[in-house]
């Protein structure tokens, strides 16, 4: 409860300022203890995210790029308050987002939703598609009665290019691309302002990948969504994002407009990454 009141106060104070970004992170840190190597010794820690700060303006599309172990997934979990930082804060429109009880975070969950990498595992195999898409509506108390929920489910399924009747089926009856569309529909259902994609197309076939990327771009435009896309693939980020943040060993190597960073990288790691990207002969 105290968290909520202080949160509101901050929001009131912040709303006065003209220069408040939609989402802001300051000094995020997160480490994990490694498995014990001896019974008595201290447990070593791996710093997955060390001192990351970033701002996302409303309507922008930020790409977070890094290789495995760079801390991308941890950073996303921290930004969405799915994990607790060791230090640092996340603010949404100036209001502090504090990881804690699900009920105290409901306001933020209505604003920010996520699409995970692997649609094979991000959908509960024992839940029909309609139930899965309706879940955030029910959990967040957004939709109201049964009819309104069903209507919204049909609406978002149509928006991602699926038939509303498909809601009666189970996830395993769909292809990878269709499943990722379902996951996107689920994220869209509560009308969030921010959509976070954690490697949203990495598990998909190349031809399907382009379709899903186009879908994300179109939704961002029509729904006025702010996008945060995490990827190891520079092509994906170039396709979707106007801002890019290069993450290397848990820290920000470079952060700036996509066009500038990709053509004129300032950090040696960014250069190394760009050189490594396999190219199609023109």
């Amino acid at each position: 409860m105290t968290a909520d009141t202080t949160g509101d106060m901050t929001a009131d104070m912040a709303a006065a300022g003209p220069d408040v970004p939609l989402l802001e992170a300051v000094g995020l840190r997160r480490g994990y203890p490694l498995p014990r190597t001896s019974l008595t010794g201290r447990r070593a820690r791996r710093e997955a995210v060390r001192d990351v700060s970033l701002r996302v303006e409303e309507g922008a599309a930020l790409g977070i790029v890094g290789e495995s172990g760079a801390g991308k997934s941890t950073l996303v979990r921290l930004l969405l308050a799915l994990d607790r930082p060791d230090a640092g804060t996340v603010r949404y429109r100036g209001r502090e987002v504090r990881p804690g009880r699900p009920s105290s975070l409901r306001w933020f969950r209505r604003e920010a939703q996520i699409v995970l990498q692997d649609p094979m595992s991000s959908l509960d195999p024992r839940m029909t598609v309609a139930r899965a898409v309706a879940e955030p509506l029910r959990a967040l108390g957004v939709a109201g009665d049964r009819a309104a929920t069903a209507a919204r489910v049909a609406e978002v399924l149509t928006a991602v290019g699926l038939e509303p009747e498909m809601g009666r089926r189970y996830p395993h009856e769909f292809s990878g691309g269709q499943r990722q569309r379902i996951a996107i529909a689920r994220a869209l259902a509560p009308r969030p302002r921010i959509l976070v994609g954690d490697e949203p197309v990495s598990a998909l076939d190349v031809s399907v990948r382009a379709q899903v990327l186009d879908l994300l771009a179109r939704l961002a435009a029509t729904e006025g969504l702010t996008l945060i896309v995490v990827s190891h693939d520079l092509g994906v980020v170039r396709h979707l994002c106007d801002q890019v943040l290069i993450l290397h060993e848990g820290a920000v190597a470079e952060h700036g407009p996509t066009a500038r960073v990709l053509t004129d990288p300032a950090h040696p790691y960014t250069r190394r990454l760009l050189d490594a990207v396999p190219r199609l002969p023109v």
Binding site: S207, L213, D233, R238, A259, L262, L274, R279, L280
Partner: peptide, 15 residues
């Protein structure tokens, strides 16, 4: 076409 859409070439100007 799909590969060209999502791959990246330094020669191309980013969209």
């Amino acid at each position: 076409a799909a590969a060209r859409a999502t791959s990246w070439n330094p020669q191309e100007t980013p969209s």
